[in-house]
Design a protein around this nucleic acid. Structure first.
Lengths: 352, 352
DNA sequence: AGTTGCGATTGGAACGCTCAAACGGATGCC
DNA sequence: GGCATCCGTTTGAGCGTTCCAATCGCAACT
């Protein structure tokens, strides 16, 4: 059986095979070929085989443009690429994007990117992409309070999932939507537990200023774990530093907390802060265990113990929730997924 | 003039406006509306105004599926997202992607992602994307010797541009193709010049083992600048360390070179290596100026002077070359673009 | 034998757009 | 006045698919 792909009657080599040419070759009608692909249960087994053979022989691949025109679905997901992040932590979303692309591809979907400088223009892009490109769904990242994006999409019955839980206070009347997020509190709690197992008692926390919901979440895990460990409110407050993200800020805050509350370990809200703490620990020769957050490449590079978000799983679950809406299969599954991060132990927490 | 968008005769609110409905409202034919959008010079000014008004009133947006079905073009570019990078340097391509998405969007193109574990499967994806999604062009990254991808695309007349020059030796018979790249040699040369202006004479180089073309390029800039500065071959060889990328490897190599050739400064092929050098310099209290490469977020975070690739411009130029092929406008412009990087000066090179 | 029912297959229509060709009216020329 | 020429516009067709209703063959039941 040699590789002759241009045997079809009226089909010449330069033309892409279509349903029609496949049908002709298999001796069936256009629609039957379509059914083999989209509704196999309607077709007799023997016919299916014949059609499949013709498809393979011609190398037929359905045109998504034609399919899209007819059905209004594109099997494409939209994702906003945020303005280039500064700092070390921005890479998290990039890694999520990688995982999402892979997950989507494995299930026959593609990811299309767009950019927007703010939420309003992101919404404008939704409109344009829906109208012109018929995108099937969107993945939203970086959810925050008063996030109008979710409401806009929900109002128009556009399927979407957010990576990041809805942060609006519970009294709010916004409709629920499916989301995937990583449990920051569980992450910092795991960090505290890890450090306590290593014998640390005075464990400080380097977090961000109030106003960041993600920040509050991470701080709360540390605080709760410390309370569980029997720590009293006064000391806790002195062990808790709030600074803007950044290496330098992290270093300064570490010096302050060291002077004020003499901790033997510090849990940080980000790897940037942790890197600051680490430089202080290493240059001063202080014995200070450090744990960061997000397990960025830098953490691996400098031997920083860090809380790792399960981004591959997050992407996978995001797609699950999306396909539940698109293919209408699910419905039984929970529509709110909170994943536990895990600690990656490295040298920075194994102080001598 | 109140906002009534559902005035069209047979058009109701739930249906997306089409060429036909716009035409009806403007009192012209379908094709004239199409011409207003795609070939304005064919339409009388007065008619154009009337049609434009109708378009605005109805909020019409052309369906790219229909357009694509008819024309075979999608205004979508494909880009392979490489497997998640380890190390610090991987973020470069992510930043390029951000810039590319923005550039493309500004010119009416979209970026669609896909993944592939190796070149062969990347090529398979090309085929699938071309057949099913009618992608207009591809952007290739991480070019290397014996890169079959470019040949495959060229053979099929698929427009593409590589970010990364073709590394095959000149004798090769591979056809030329448009590319954009950053001049690594110019980058390391700038680093040397910078350090010499600061009074350094013995400037070491931390590079990768042989076999990496990008590595050779960067090393050659340092070597040439050192020769220009009057350095002799024997010392040069001892100032040149070759190690696999990584922070730890960079630190070890720095110690070795310090012991062997006592440089006062070191230029590195990557920020990872530079970070290793920096830790040595800082912990040993050695006065060693350090310059990295790629200006990753880490460099900014730890105050590392680094050679920055002009990624935004690279993306822009990539798109220029792509559109030259797609819209057939250009042809005069050079099809090979080599961009000069620039040095971002930070504390690590300003040794006391 | 005639009707009903069902599974498998078919042909026509439509999705919204652009291409190619045809058309009508104004203008120019002999 | 007749004919070619031009510009601006319209008409018909078709891109490749899926939806929908119709059809066909066959078995089962009255």
């Amino acid at each position: 059986m040699h590789d002759d792909r241009r045997e079809g009657a009226t089909v010449d080599a330069t033309t892409r095979p279509t349903l029609e040419s496949v049908a002709q070759r298999a001796g069936v009608s256009r629609q039957t070929v379509s059914n083999v692909l989209n509704a196999p249960h309607l077709v007799r087994a023997e016919t299916t085989d014949r059609v499949r053979a013709a498809i393979d022989a011609l190398g037929y691949r359905p045109s998504s443009a034609a399919r899209q025109l007819r059905t209004g679905r594109s099997r494409v997901l939209g994702l906003r690429l945020e303005p280039v992040h500064d700092g070390i932590n921005g890479a998290v979303l990039d890694r999520f994007l990688h995982a999402l692309t892979e997950s989507a591809q494995a299930r026959g979907y593609r990811v299309m990117l767009f950019t927007a400088p703010d939420d309003d223009r992101e919404i404008a892009q939704y409109g344009e992409l829906l109208d012109t490109a018929d995108l099937d769904a969107f993945v939203l990242t970086s959810t925050h309070r008063d996030d109008r994006r979710a409401a806009w999409l929900a109002e128009r019955d556009v399927p979407f999932v957010t990576f990041g839980r809805p942060w609006d206070p519970p009294g709010d009347d916004r409709p629920a939507h499916p989301w995937v997020d990583v449990d920051g509190a569980a992450g910092t709690r795991a960090a505290v537990d890890h450090l306590r197992r290593l014998g640390h008692e005075r464990i400080a926390y380097l977090g961000w200023p109030d106003g960041s919901d993600v920040g509050e979440d991470r701080a709360s895990g540390w605080a709760a774990a410390m309370v569980d460990a029997g720590h009293d409110g006064g000391l806790l407050r002195r062990l808790h530093a709030r600074v803007p993200d950044g290496v330098a800020a992290g270093a300064q805050a570490t010096e302050r907390v060291l002077a004020d509350a003499s901790p033997t370990a510090v849990v940080c809200a980000s790897d940037s802060l942790a890197l600051g703490a680490l430089t202080v620990a290493r240059t001063h020769g202080t014995s200070l265990a450090v744990v960061g957050f997000d397990d960025t490449p830098v953490a691996a590079a400098v031997g920083l113990t860090s809380v790792a978000q399960p981004l591959t799983e997050a992407a996978h679950r995001t797609l699950d929730l999306l396909l539940d809406q698109l293919d209408g299969t699910g419905g039984t599954r929970s529509r709110e997924v909170l994943l536990a991060p895990h600690l990656v132990e490295r040298a920075s927490s194994r102080t001598p």
